[in-house]
Design a protein around this nucleic acid. Structure first.
Length: 525
RNA sequence: GGGCGCGUAGCGCAACGGUAGAGCAGUGGCCUUUUAAGCCAUUGGUUGCAGGUUCGAAUCCUGUCGCGCCCA
């Protein structure tokens, strides 16, 4: 069913038809661009410095962003990926009919190309004196006008597309009119590139492990469920890469990493998207302190590469990424922040009572580890604005981490925080297959059969570990959150090109998509 | 999941119980160095959706959909 066009769109469609009647193809196959806007300006400056009398002849192409028809001349700006350049069309140069064609049938948003010699206008702007121009692609739907005005040297954009819903649902329009949004995703790409380079330079091997997994694991999260028709088997979209990457250490790789997508069937918020990008690495013969030092070096390296400096502003906070980051031992941190020494309360009941005494309402039915996690989330994390490693975590919320020698209730694990937000999570990895099996069984007992965080036991992972897994340190970090820090964004949706939003009722896709025996399970819980 | 807020023209906004408006964009016209160009004229709306209250609803009420913020 064709979409209902707005009156503005109908006007443009009519223009398009008129162009075709005139024998002008509004969507030609090829363009003849010789210079980007930036290259054209650079070429002009070079010829100007060389003292040449006329500027270089160029063909530029881009989207029409402004038009100022003034009788027998017209000024316009086109924009390409490198920036804007002004076009100057004069009846004397191109003839009255061509000028009229441009003024009447070319609209803001259209992709056009223009050929001419570069010169400076009276106000000094480098401009193409157009000899020839051509439609490259007609825009039917008008983009938001987004006019720029320079006030006291600052660019003020008017009537800019700002509604978050429209910006996320129609990211293409957001990107088309908001150059600073385009910049976010350039920064994101630089971050990922820097991480890869850092890891590659340190001898890590980039690998790809299954996204579709018969058993999910490696994190506490609900999975998305799908189904392989021929295998007649349920498959889960991975919630982490951990268990597969560690299998590779059994296979004698010593340093492996993966950058990819994880999927978690949970709430959507300003820091959660159902699919998000994760970096995980595993490093044989390293422990969590070694990983800690490596991680802060890695982030500093990313800062050097992306920002050219190691400080940044995030939501008004000056953040210093220089190593070493602040280190807070979890037990000590809670003693100082809450006045509770978790060591004095070895059971959930005792700890809950201690919390109540302090006026803190403990989460009902929570394990000791969960209660500690509650205290950490409420009283420590929000204060970790500067880069901070919190280390030594309770064992029962860390089933894949190795216990601390001398304290079987705690494990060698740390999390990194910036801006009060959890950024990364790492441990000395558990490599004792008997302990690992015991932990899995323990988890099975801790959670009721219908608990959302209950995980099936990965027998194959245990088998791999029984073959022998070297001692190793592992690390996981959310790339989206790291990008938020580097781009000063508060919402994860600002750093994901196409974030998930609820489907609009009147925008449903064809309904035959859900031909899937397990589709209903995807909606459970 | 709970609380608060928002949804009006393509875009950014106004009107807050009494005829839905202005700007930009659009359309027609004037204009040979403009840059939110200017001047004149002008088109465009089931006020997210569905009910209710009222002589009268964009405005008040209820529900619903979507988004945002805060909390869990």
């Amino acid at each position: 069913m064709p979409t209902e066009l707005t009156p503005l769109e109908k006007v443009r469609l009519e223009k398009l038809e008129r162009l075709r009647e005139m024998g002008i193809e509004p969507y030609p196959n090829r363009a003849e661009r010789t210079h980007t806007a930036e290259e054209a300006k650079a070429a002009f400056l070079a010829s100007e410095q060389a003292g040449e009398e006329t500027g270089p002849r160029v063909t530029v192409a881009g989207r029409l962003r402004s038009m100022r028809p003034m009788g027998k001349i017209t000024f316009a700006h086109i924009e390409d990926a490198t920036g804007r350049i002004q076009l100057f069309l004069r009846a004397n140069d191109i003839g009255k009919d061509r000028l009229k064609l441009f003024n009447k049938f070319f609209d803001l948003g259209d992709f056009v190309q223009a050929t001419g010699v570069l010169f400076r206008t009276r106000s000094g702007e480098i401009t193409v004196r157009v000899e020839d121009f051509r439609m490259l692609a007609k825009a039917i739907t008008p983009l938001p006008p987004a006019k720029d005005e320079v006030v006291d040297g600052k660019v003020v954009r008017h009537a800019v597309l700002a509604d978050p819903e429209t910006r996320y649902r129609q990211r293409y329009a957001d990107l088309a009119v908001n150059p600073e949004v385009r910049e976010i995703f350039r920064t994101r790409a630089k971050i990922v590139r820097a991480l890869r380079d850092f890891l590659d330079d340190h001898g890590f091997l980039e690998v790809e492990t299954p996204i579709l997994q018969p058993i999910y694991g490696g994190a506490a999260a609900r999975p998305f469920i799908t189904y392989h028709n021929q295998l007649k088997q349920k498959l889960y979209l991975r919630i982490s890469f951990e268990l597969y990457l560690k299998r590779l250490l059994v296979g004698m790789y010593e340093k492996v990493y993966e950058i990819g997508r994880d999927f978690r069937n949970e709430g959507i918020s300003f820091k959660h998207n159902p699919e998000f990008t994760q970096l995980e690495f595993y490093w044989a013969y390293a422990d969590y302190f070694k990983v800690m030092e490596f991680a802060e070096e890695m982030i500093a390296f990313v800062a050097d590469r992306v920002l050219g400096k190691r400080t940044l502003t995030w939501q008004g906070h000056e953040i210093d990424l220089n190593p070493p980051w602040r280190r807070v031992e979890l037990r000590q941190g809670l003693i100082e922040a809450v006045g509770i020494d978790i060591k004095d309360y070895p059971t959930a009941e005792e700890l809950a009572a201690a919390m109540k005494k302090k006026g803190i309402e403990p989460k009902p039915n929570a394990s000791r580890g969960k209660l500690i996690d509650q205290l950490v989330s409420d009283y420590l994390e929000p204060n970790f604005i500067q880069p901070t490693f919190l280390y030594n975590y309770p064992r029962d919320i860390s089933p894949l981490a190795k216990a601390m020698p001398g304290d079987p209730t705690m494990v060698e694990r740390f999390e990194g925080f910036i801006g009060g937000m959890e950024l990364c999570n790492a441990f000395t990895e558990l490599n004792d297959p008997l302990d690992q099996e015991a932990r899995f069984l323990e988890m099975g007992r801790t959670y009721a059969a219908d608990d959302e965080e209950r995980h099936p036991i990965d027998e194959d992972y245990l088998r791999a570990m029984r073959y022998g897994m070297p001692p190793n340190g592992g690390f996981g970090m959310g790339i989206d959150r790291l990008t938020m820090i580097f781009t000063d964004k508060r919402s994860i949706r600002e750093v994901i090109l196409f974030p998930h939003l609820r489907e609009r009722e009147n925008a449903k896709p064809p309904s035959e998509v859900t031909e899937n025996p397990t589709a209903e399970e995807n909606n459970e819980g």
